[in-house]
């Protein structure tokens, strides 16, 4: 049955491939433009492979020039890695508490946490802003990190996995005299490691790409994350499209790498939880 249709399958593959290239054209254009000299950017027909290479100079200007991406990269890496780490720990602890510790208040508290999930983040921006100014968290990386650290989604996702752990494991450990913290750390966490990896990668992507929170909660240039810097860079270099594209490539690249490494986790994670940042 399968073999009979090989030719058909091949033709469909070729057609789909052409469609996928068309779909990716904006990225291809971005990449090729980032290596061009400015005069060639708008040449038509488009030179997909630059005739005059200027890539090194473009990226050097982006990374070390007036608006040094090296600094914003460092800011983004710092904020993203710490946010991801805290968020994973807080979510995993809460998920364990809500699934494996049998305490009556738990069900009620879990409901409260879940209801906050319905609140669109944009509808609480103003009070958050006022609160941050009041607490002195405004315009700091620490404040920005806190905003991404308490994820209901992460708690819910990991809770599903903890619930899948058979309670025999936990009862056996208890008989051996292990407390909940011991069980959490040496039994439960290792079992759900794949789920944690999935959630961590997703949280990494969402935090890296976040534009709204840095826009509202950061003011000092030196604290900017890559997304914010990207936009400022664009308005500063309005006419230098080759530079802007080099900046765009720089902003997207780390995620493409994370995605290629964790491709399976990301796609499975998205498919499994049906989650969206």
């Amino acid at each position: 049955m399968e073999k009979k249709f090989t030719l058909r399958k091949l033709i469909i593959t070729i057609i789909t491939f052409v469609v996928s290239i068309a779909f990716l054209l904006p990225f291809i254009w971005m990449l090729s433009t980032s290596f061009k000299i400015e005069a060639d950017v708008f040449k038509f027909p488009v030179e997909w492979i630059p005739t005059r290479w200027n890539g090194l100079e473009n990226f050097k200007e982006v990374w070390l020039g007036q608006y040094p991406f090296a600094l914003y990269y460092w800011n983004s890496i710092k904020v993203t890695v710490i946010t991801t780490a805290i968020s994973v720990i807080v979510s995993a602890m809460a998920a364990y508490g809500f699934s494996k510790v049998n305490f009556p208040a738990g069900k009620f508290l879990f409901l409260i946490v879940l209801t906050t999930f319905m609140v669109p983040q944009q509808s609480i921006l103003v009070p958050q802003f006022i609160l941050y100014r009041y607490l002195g968290l405004f315009d700091s990386h620490f404040g920005l990190i806190l905003l991404g650290s308490f994820s209901v989604l992460g708690t819910f996702m990991l809770r599903q996995f903890f619930m899948g752990i058979h309670s025999d494991y936990i009862d056996a450990a208890k008989i051996d005299g292990a407390g909940h913290f011991r069980i959490f750390w040496s039994i439960a966490l290792p079992i759900v490691r794949p789920a944690i990896a999935t959630y961590a990668i997703l949280r990494f992507i969402w935090t890296w790409n976040d534009y709204q929170n840095p826009l509202i909660f950061l003011r000092t240039d030196g604290l900017y994350t890559i997304q914010l810097a990207m936009q400022k860079f664009t308005s500063l270099n309005g006419e230098f499209y080759s530079l802007i594209m080099a900046a765009a490539v720089s902003a997207i690249l780390p995620l493409v790498i994370v995605f290629i490494i964790g491709q399976k986790q990301v796609i499975e994670g998205i498919a499994m939880g049906g989650v969206k940042g």
Binding site: V90, A94, V101, V119, I124
Partner: peptide, 30 residues
Amino acid sequence: ENLTGLLFVSPMLIGVGILTLLPIIATFIL
């Protein structure tokens, strides 16, 4: 068990309480 449970979920509860619950109430008031 009660105490342990609360310990496990309290970072999440405090975070969500201060950064989501309080602000949504404030939104309605404001």
